[in-house]
């Protein structure tokens, strides 16, 4: 197990931290957005849904390019960040969190939306006539009934966030010890002909992906 000893594990810890924070962002935005899409009607709903799904079909580098434009040093967001923290947002691990969050959002949003849509509205009606305010119905009725699908969506989003390469490398770069996440490290090791390290890192990522798929399968198959 020589290969394990020589591997630089920083990318693993960075990836876990980035993916976890990105998943928190995705969960808040994705679950709230999915609820709004499934249970409310507002003008432009179809457009919002299409836009939110864009990261699935866009090449990750293209998505990264637009993010770079959005948060670059010349953009309002980039300048606001710089005014607040004193340093640019691009090419930091925080930018990697943003990239992973945007890239993984549609996975959480679409799965959770399908789960909310599948909830029988008759339960919500019963709660409504019983006097529960709409926000309590969302929390005590709709969310628990959609829980499995919502958790499956969050799990998928975590896996996607952990595996993001193209979007992250565009906005956070490949700075060893600072923004080099696992997938980027795999690419980096292969470029350096260090196949042993690449193999170990790739194996860890593959194992995580398989576990996630098993969890999601279990959640989606079992019924309440």
């Amino acid at each position: 197990m020589e290969a394990f000893a020589e591997v630089d594990w920083f990318p693993l810890w960075l990836s876990l931290r980035v993916a976890t924070l990105a998943t928190v962002v995705t969960t808040v935005v994705g679950v709230a957005g999915a609820y709004a899409l499934a249970r409310t009607h507002f003008p432009g709903r179809g457009l919002v849904e299409a836009l939110a799904s864009l990261p699935i079909v866009l090449p990750p580098t293209v998505l990264g390019y637009y993010l770079l434009v959005l948060i670059g040093r010349d953009s309002p967001i980039g300048q606001a960040w710089e005014a607040l923290t004193g340093s640019p947002l691009v090419f930091t691990w925080q930018a990697a969190v943003l990239a992973a969050a945007v890239a993984s959002l549609p996975f959480c949003l679409r799965t959770a939306r399908a789960a909310f849509t599948a909830v029988d509205t008759r339960y919500e009606e019963a709660a409504r006539v019983a006097g529960l305010p709409e926000w309590r119905i969302a929390v005590t009725v709709t969310l628990p009934l959609a829980a499995r699908g919502v958790i499956a969506g969050i799990t998928l989003a975590f896996a996607r966030a952990l595996g993001d390469f193209g979007t992250t490398v565009m906005v956070a770069g490949n700075v060893p010890g600072r923004t080099q996440t696992m997938p980027i490290a795999v690419f980096d090791r292969v470029q350096a002909f260090d196949y042993a390290s690449a193999g170990v890192l790739a194996g860890v990522l593959a194992a995580v992906a398989i576990v996630v798929l098993l969890v999601v399968r279990r959640l989606e198959r079992s019924t309440l």
Binding site: R122, Y123, V129, G131, L132
Partner: peptide, 17 residues
């Protein structure tokens, strides 16, 4: 409906599972 203060028993029980 929340403000009407009615009690409804539906054809199906509609209890939260």
């Amino acid at each position: 409906p929340q403000q009407r203060r009615l009690g409804v028993v539906f054809q199906e029980h509609r209890l939260l599972p």
